[in-house]
C-alpha cells in the first residue's frame, strides 16, 4: 500500500476565518492526502491531535494576527515531547517581515494569499521525501 500523507489542518486559536482552510482541506484531499480537519484549536490540543492521528504535517491557518505567538508555540510543544518528524506549515494573512522569524522558530514554510495549491502540495511532498531518505 502506498504511504498516504496525513495532514492535520486547523484554525489557529480563536480566529474565525474558516472558509479558506476548509477550501484548502478539500483541495489537499483532492491531491490525494488524508486530511484531518480540527476546526479551531489551541497549540496544546493541536499537538495532541497530531500525535494521536499520526500526522506527517500540521497546517495552521490564521488571519487573526496570532501567528507570532501561537504558531511557534506548536513547534515548541512538539519539541518538548521529543517529536521532530511532524512538519509545521502556516498560511493566511501573515506579514512578510514576520516570515523569517517564524522560520527561525521552526515553521517549515509560510504560504500567503494567492498561493497555488500545487505549490503547497509539492513543498510538502518534497520535504517528506527528504525525511524518508534521511
Amino acid at each position: 500500500m502506498d504511504k498516504k500523507i496525513k495532514i492535520v489542518t486547523v484554525k489557529l486559536g480563536l480566529d474565525i476565518h474558516w472558509r479558506g482552510i476548509v477550501v484548502l482541506s478539500r483541495m489537499l484531499r483532492d491531491a490525494g492526502m488524508e486530511v484531518v480537519y480540527l476546526g479551531n484549536q489551541f497549540p496544546e490540543q493541536i499537538v495532541e491531535a497530531a500525535i494521536q492521528e499520526g500526522a506527517d504535517v500540521i497546517g495552521l491557518s490564521t488571519l487573526g494576527g496570532n501567528h507570532m505567538s501561537l504558531g511557534p508555540k506548536v513547534v515548541e510543544l512538539l519539541r518538548e515531547k521529543g517529536i521532530d518528524d511532524i512538519m509545521v506549515i502556516m498560511g493566511g494573512v501573515i506579514p512578510e517581515e514576520d516570515v523569517p522569524a517564524l522560520k527561525e522558530k521552526g515553521i517549515a514554510e509560510v504560504f500567503g494569499p494567492e498561493t497555488k495549491v500545487d505549490s503547497i502540495v509539492s513543498f510538502v511532498e518534497s520535504e517528506l521525501e527528504k525525511e524518508n531518505v534521511k
Partner: peptide, 18 residues
Amino acid sequence: FTGGALLGDRIRMQELAK
C-alpha cells in the same frame, strides 16, 4: 478518484480534546 480523504469526525469531538 483521488485516493484522498477528509476526516471530519474529530471536529464534532472538540470537547473531548481537553
